[in-house]
Write a protein that binds this DNA or RNA. Structure first.
Lengths: 99, 99
DNA sequence: TTGAATTATTGTATAAATACAACAAAATTA
DNA sequence: TAATTTTGTTGTATTTATACAATAATTCAA
């Protein structure tokens, strides 16, 4: 099967938790170089390995991996905050006495 | 890497939509026998293939695949309905005049 | 009941995923 | 600054995922 190159957030998630590739590799039970290959997109993981990474970070697979280039998390957060502001304007407060 | 046997709901989802392995295979671009191997758990898919199956069914990967044996959907639905009943008892109706 | 479609099984071949080794470069720490 | 750790690169080997072929069994439709 022709494999699409997949994208992932492994490096960012590692950085957030201040752990090295070696540490992550030990935790999920693979060679440390495998983590490097995955981060650089040199090959895609098996689904089993994707589950292991998902379980380690406590995040859904679809949050970590994607078939399309992923936006930086910072950008996604900003977009969510804008959306939140929009919602606040369209739906005034129901709870509380004052608007 | 030692591969864990993964579990999946491919067969049920196919049945729900009344499509054969051959049809699914053609849609996601694999040999029809590959679908059979996956359903029977003879080997696990690559993450890319898992994404293709996920996209076809419009369901999250974690809904279709699991590292543990999955409960029948019917059982999960019943559990959710029970949970719903529990919630209705603990939180009486806020909207509407009558309870 | 027959024919077609679908599925199961076995085997071979190929491609991709992963481990490991060795070496080098870059980054970090003391 | 030197030592250590982390990361990148290349190569080889092994395992797993997938395609394809052939055959048989099962299921479904007419």
């Amino acid at each position: 099967m022709e494999q699409r190159k997949l994208y992932n957030r492994i490096a960012v998630l590692r950085e957030e938790r201040d752990i090295s590739r070696k540490e992550l590799a030990e935790k999920i039970g693979v060679n440390y170089q495998t983590v490097g290959y995955l981060e650089r997109g040199e090959y895609n993981p098996s689904l089993d390995l994707a589950f292991k990474i998902s379980e380690f970070f406590g995040l859904p697979i679809e949050f970590i991996f994607s078939t399309k280039p992923m936006k930086p998390l910072s950008e996604e957060i900003l977009n969510l905050k804008k959306l939140e502001e929009t919602w606040k304007k369209e739906e005034p407060q129901k709870d509380g006495a004052q608007g």
